Amino acid sequence: MEVLFLDQNKWIELARVRAGVVTTGPAYIAYAELHEAVDKGRVIAPLTVSHILETSKRNDQTSRTHVVEVQSALSKGWVFRSREARILIEMRNALHSIFEESPVQFDLNWAIAPSFMQAFETFDTLVASHTEATTSRFLNEHVDPKRQYIDYMLDQDDQRRRTAHAAFSAESDALLARIEQRRALMRGATIDLRWRAYAALLFYDHQGYVAHMLEVIGHTVDEMKQLGPEAIVTFIRNVPTLNVEAALATRLEAQTGSLEPNDIRDMQSFCATIPYANRLVAEKSFISLARQAKLDASYQAGLYTNLTDISGVYK
């Protein structure tokens, strides 16, 4: 079964078909083909944190309902796992690699999981507390993940919704500010130099995770230091979520135009999906950045900009 990522704008195009607003054209054709392919188990289109939060922000109940219905049908209520869970698993194998040890073998699609809640660290069964992980498992055993998503989206607690948006916006704003600061510092630098500098920053920001995973696999920070600076470069390249972030962030830094919070949300979605999706349909700007960084080749991911591009693929 293939994994497909759809940008939020593509979900909105499909929702317009669901609403009966669009009755012909590429989105109409894709709507029918994707529903059939999902029903027959050929493909699934999991959601990301960005999808969940962007959809929940839609204040018009009718409009939100159409988006939710399409998303729940094509995702089956599955999501790309939380950032923390992905990074820890990826770090474990990256550390095994630099110590020339055999990696841990995981299921092919381990990075996607049932229940929209698992897109958030708090309820991701790989990293949640025992209590919260038990809650997630209990819900998944007794409530269909599609139903969980629909019920949450159409009957949300407003305060909880606002809190989630505020936290996500703060994280995005902080990353955006950091990129803007680095633009001035790295003006005129090559992409390779920018990447190495950003990789070093990512390593510093995640050193607590690194130390924890070193302990898990029976090594120490001192042992890693003995491998030299290039080991850190190799390590970041072998942690897909961080490697994609470094590749995209450095190219965003090199652009001359102003950046928007949406750019950060798109980047975060790509960090979650490029390493684990077979195909991605998204906006031209980020597809172009990903191609420049050759991320499609690195992760064998098909990159597309229109629903037309995947017409007939899943027949």
Rank of each mutant, 00 (worst) to 15 (best):
E223R: 04
I236P: 01
L202M: 15
G218H: 07
A211V: 08
T234C: 13
V233N: 11
D192C: 09
I232E: 07
L202R: 09
Y204W: 13
G208C: 07
V216F: 05
F203N: 01
L201S: 10
Y209N: 09
I236T: 03
F235H: 09
M224Q: 10
L202Y: 01
G208T: 06
L193D: 14
D205S: 13
Q226A: 15
R194E: 08
G228I: 11
V221G: 10
H219C: 10
L202D: 05
I236K: 02
L193V: 13
Y204T: 08
D192R: 14
L193I: 12
P229K: 08
H219Q: 12
M213N: 01
L214T: 00
Y204I: 11
E215Q: 03
D222I: 08
I232D: 08
D222A: 15
V210W: 02
Y198R: 13
L193S: 10
H212R: 12
R196A: 11
A211P: 00
M224N: 04
E215P: 00
A200N: 13
I191G: 05
I232C: 11
Q226C: 07
T220I: 05
V216G: 00
L201G: 03
E215A: 09
G218A: 09
E230N: 12
E223H: 02
Y204N: 09
I217L: 15
L202V: 11
F235M: 14
A211F: 02
T234S: 15
M224K: 04
G208F: 13
W195T: 05
E223F: 08
K225M: 14
L214V: 02
V216I: 13
D222R: 15
L201Q: 12
L202A: 12
H206F: 14
V216M: 03
I236W: 08
V210G: 02
R194P: 03
G208W: 07
G208D: 12
M224H: 03
E230M: 07
Y198S: 07
D205H: 12
I217Q: 00
Q226S: 15
E215R: 00
G208I: 06
E215T: 05
L201D: 12
L227G: 02
P229R: 06
F203V: 04
R194K: 11
F203W: 08
L202W: 05
I217H: 03
P229A: 06
R196N: 11
V216N: 04
R194T: 01
Y209E: 12
K225I: 10
E223C: 09
A200H: 10
F203D: 03
A199T: 01
V210E: 00
